[in-house]
Design a protein around this nucleic acid. Structure first.
Lengths: 172, 172
DNA sequence: CGGTATCCCATTTGATACTG
DNA sequence: CAGTATCAAATGGGATACCG
């Protein structure tokens, strides 16, 4: 990745990309959700090289997404378990998964997402407005926040204008 | 990334990771949401090398997330715009962004996500059960689908048992 | 079992110069 | 402006051997 990325520091997408955007980290998180916990489980099921796995597990533990725990009885037995922060990635995984299934074509994933207590299937992830109404991605927009710097503010406004004129063109 | 990944083929997370998990693609999508459209805009604002940018733009256009359009008047002017599939990544970006802000620490992002029509701030992204109730990640679980292969089924059941016994331990 | 160390090759990346 | 071409450097990845 880039070193001198001007937006790297303060953009949350950039941050999470730096942490999880390496092609393996997200897969490891997903594996943890699917029940893996041991080094060899991750290795076998992902087909990842051992040195890379070591590296990624360390990174994820360091970032607080996994916790490493060795058994007291047998110190050779180690388990990597999702922390609360790691489990909080569930909506991200669902959003990615649903987008993937809709736009990357059918795939026989065979995993259902259900509520533990009731066993009911969960609905597609939603982005809701303040009044709870479901929103389409097309209705959503990024706006400059109160402390946005002028340059970002100008860009967002320009993007908004452009989208607006496009919508007008489409309507006419 | 790995070549012989056993779950690579049919896991939606693996697919989307293969497409967007390279550290730049998601940043480019985000830039497009922020209003960038020209090659040089992406280059300057992301600080990405030109050849890498060329490569990624091609990949994203090929995957149908961006569309490339050259102006009729001046063929040197090219614009990359999000397609419907690209815009459909908005929930993913929001989920990532919200997770990042909550778990990767404070950052002065200064971008608000609002509903275009009303200007209202959108609420945190939600995963809802069939009856519309909001769910916490801890309540969610992956279960084998009807066509899951036996191995995956066994893993998911094991993960479920383990989570169950953990919950019981935590409750006692 | 859960790593670490090492070697080696393939791919990716970044920088820069060049082109239509 | 929007790329291509080229090259050096870094990183990633596979295989294997070794260790507590």
């Amino acid at each position: 990745m880039s070193k001198s990325n001007p937006c790297q520091g303060n953009c949350p997408i950039a941050r999470v990309t730096a942490l999880l955007g390496d092609g393996w980290s997200l897969m490891i998180i997903r594996e943890a959700f699917l029940g893996s916990g041991k080094f060899n489980e991750f290795e076998r099921r992902l087909g990842i090289a051992r040195n890379i796995l070591t590296n990624r597990l360390r990174k994820l533990v360091g970032a607080g997404l996994l916790k490493r725990r060795e058994s007291e009885t047998d110190r050779r037995v180690v388990e990597y378990r999702l922390t609360a922060a790691g489990r909080a990635l569930f909506p991200v995984l669902i959003a990615l998964s649903q987008w993937s299934e809709q736009h990357l074509g059918d795939c026989s994933h065979s995993v259902r997402y259900v509520e533990r207590a009731t066993g009911e299937e969960i609905r597609p992830i939603r982005v809701v407005s303040a009044d709870g109404r479901e929103l389409d991605a097309g209705e959503l927009v990024m706006l400059p926040g109160p402390d946005a710097d002028p340059a970002l503010r100008a860009r967002l406004n320009a993007a908004l204008d452009q989208a607006g004129s496009e919508a007008a063109r489409a309507a006419s």
